[in-house]
Design a protein around this nucleic acid. Structure first.
Length: 487
RNA sequence: GACCCCAUCGUCUAGUCAGGUCAGGACACCGGGUUUUCAUCCCGGCAACACGGGUUCGAAUCCCGUUGGGGUCACCA
């Protein structure tokens, strides 16, 4: 295959949506797989809805996902500008061509009249297509000074076939297609025309987009034909649905990819998950980015719409978190720790050790920071969970905690092995089971009955903080009124 | 309503194009094991070819129909 050129062409009327992200991913993967180019083009001709913030949000989303574009906003390229709003002269050139070749005609029907006709057709069960009233108007019949739109003089019969790389041939009867408006009465060209001109002039070879565009494709092919140009290859990927099988929207949860960043998802996990939603490679679930590039094929993209499954994304994200190095994770969560207002700035080695105890338990970076709160908190800022306190801070554990404190205080090498040996000795001396000692200590140092393994946690917390919290716990229990006496 | 697309466990899917293994994997769920809690991990379980006709010795796979779901029908993109 000669180097393909693919484009992602979002309209900037919001953030980067999950569905858009997957479309962009498929385009990007295909381009990277075949050594082609990935082009970003902004479809901002709807000035009422397009905003600069949206453009930025979409760029941010793509960058977060690591979908780099070879041409487009902020990087430029040989086919600039990459904003439709700035390509007026290009469109005008091709409008002129189509007028000259007789493919466009003036239609003086008012928007109001068309709306009425459409509604009447709907009511009477006819198809709501334009009735071609003005198609054969001669210039003598043009009402002077009246506004008009330019319509495509489309074929009246025959058929238009979309050769889709995912779905095969999709045939549309031309009589089902009406004479689409190409230029508004104010002179602005419409979407189906500008998208064709852009794809054509930018040398796009493969148009990969959502299923919702399949019905636009024959209209675009008719424009290519009028222009006398061979259309690119098309591939329409199935849409992403919510749990109720309705088109994915905000009420199904987060649809903004950057919200997943906020919630502590990793871009690689998101990429992996998005790729697997609609595309597959045998039984494989986890793919590195380079594997995805190597294996991606439009042949393996399914045809049926898929349901967004946040549970599986969570699982995948956990897999990625576990697989990252402690050091890398430390970098990633540092901003989150300070944003949460925690003070403890531990040395890198200590930080890595702490993360090692947490990462296989956390499915998101947010969970990781949350579950490690007892690490980042100052020693004296410990908060005991009510239930854990009630269950494990009983007066009878005081001797055990005191014995543990005394023994640990003597420990020279504060590491997993030494800690285990040290506590084993305490256990033997007191003749109690591990559970009787581990849980009170756990609550003392973490504030809860749930935490990573005790030795590694003590080791990662550090001797000073650990002993301080043990002391605090002992004092706390001693200060507590003895409930047994009353009841 | 018309047109277009789609149809395997609850979900993502393999298998469909070149009909022939108890329909495979993953998430979730349930049970068991490991264990100082939780999680990880390991083992096991539950669970699907939408329905009806054909074609065929044989159909998840090919054909037709039905049903269901989705999408699109703008002087939006």
């Amino acid at each position: 295959m000669t180097a393909p050129r693919l484009r992602f062409a979002p309209s900037p009327s919001g953030y980067l949506h999950i569905g858009g992200a997957r479309t962009a991913l498929f385009c990007w993967l295909f381009a990277r797989r075949h050594g082609g180019q990935f082009i970003l083009r902004v479809e901002d001709t709807d000035r009422a809805r397009s905003t600069a913030e949206s453009i930025q949000a979409i760029l941010d989303g793509l960058r977060w996902l690591g979908l780099d574009w070879d041409e487009g906003p902020e990087v430029g390229g040989p086919h600039a500008p990459y904003f439709q709003s700035q390509r007026g002269p290009v469109y005008q050139r091709y409008v002129d061509q189509l007028i000259k070749t007789g493919h466009l005609y003036r239609c003086y029907c008012s928007a109001e009249l068309l709306r009425e006709k459409r509604e009447a057709a709907q009511r009477e069960g006819r198809k709501p297509a334009y009735d071609r009233t003005c198609r054969e108007l001669s210039p003598q019949q043009w009402p002077a000074g009246e506004p008009y739109v330019l319509r495509l003089k489309a074929p009246l019969d025959g058929e238009t076939t979309v050769s889709d790389l995912i779905r095969g041939d999709v045939v549309f009867q031309n009589k089902e297609l009406s004479d689409q408006v190409v230029v508004r009465s104010n002179g602005d060209p419409l979407y189906n025309f500008v998208v064709v001109v852009d794809d054509m002039t930018m040398g796009i070879t493969h148009v990969v987009r959502g299923d919702d565009h399949l019905n636009n494709t024959p209209k675009q092919i008719q424009i290519y034909q009028a222009l006398g140009v061979k259309p690119p290859s098309f591939a329409h990927a199935p849409l992403i649905l919510g749990a109720d099988k309705k088109r994915l929207s905000k009420r199904h949860g987060a649809t903004n990819v950057m919200q997943y960043d906020d919630e502590g998802y990793l871009p690689d996990a998101m990429i992996n998950f998005l790729a697997r939603l609609g595309w597959s490679h045998g039984d494989q679930e986890v793919f590195r980015r380079d594997e995805l590039i190597e294996l991606f094929s439009l042949d393996a993209v399914g045809r049926s719409p898929g349901v967004w499954n946040p549970e599986k994304l969570l699982w995948l994200n956990g897999q990625y978190i576990t697989s990252l190095s402690d050091e890398r994770l430390a970098e990633m969560i540092a901003p989150r720790i300070s944003a949460a207002g925690f003070q403890d700035a531990a040395a890198d080695a200590v930080m890595a050790k702490r993360i090692a105890t947490l990462k296989e338990r956390a499915r998101t970076l947010a969970e990781l920071v949350d579950q490690g709160a007892f690490y980042w908190r100052a020693a004296e800022a410990i908060e005991y969970e009510a239930k854990a306190k009630r269950k494990f801070f009983k007066p009878d554990c005081l001797p055990r905690l005191k014995a543990a404190h005394a023994a640990l205080n003597q420990l020279q090498n504060w590491n997993d092995q030494e800690l285990e040996a040290c506590l084993a000795e305490v256990l033997a001396k007191l003749d109690v089971k591990m559970g009787k000692l581990a849980q009170p200590i756990r609550v003392a140092i973490t504030g809860t009955s749930i935490s990573p393994g005790l030795y590694e946690t003590l080791a990662a917390l550090g001797k000073v903080k650990s002993l301080q919290r043990l002391t605090m716990a002992i004092e706390h229990i001693e200060a507590e009124p003895r409930e047994e006496a009353g009841s």
